[in-house]
Amino acid sequence: MAFKDDKFYVEKVINGDTSAYAGLVNKHKEMVFTIAVKIVRNHEDAEEIAQDAFLKAFHALADFKGEAKFSTWLYRIAYNTAVSQSRKRKLEFSVISDEMINNYTTDKVSRSVNELSEDEQINAINSLMEKLPEEENLLLTLFYKNEKSIEDISEITGYTQSNVKVKLYRLRKKMYSELEQHFNLS
């Protein structure tokens, strides 16, 4: 489905055509839902959070100055809504120890993974990502899967760009370490 530029829908909504908001929902629902589900890890809760985020964004649309991208602004709302919901349930973010992330061998891991069938690779990555703490799972998804820029991730999560880079660097090492363990390579 081809979508128009966000600005087109935003202007229509502000000018009174509230049904045009459906265009924005359709365009961004997958990303908003992904952010929510990575944080809360529950389909029903994630849908509720995504719906809440869209409603919050709608009511704040008049205040949206267009300085940031609409998508980033919306994802930030979704992220904050999800995190605040998770905090109520005492969400724990893990601390990655330096010991865990040292001495990885990318070649060794990539060779082993490439020897697997497509289905086995999907199962392996799903299983590893499932084990990751919520925040790391989200960062990995945003950067490597959805190819969001460091700048966008920084705006969505509220972390500084350097902080995002450090987290991603550690996360990358951790993934290799986990993959090594998964394939008994270490």
Binding site: T141, Y144, K145
Partner: peptide, 8 residues
């Protein structure tokens, strides 16, 4: 590899 993860 991460792109192969299931999208919910």
């Amino acid at each position: 590899l991460v792109k192969k993860s299931t999208t919910i």
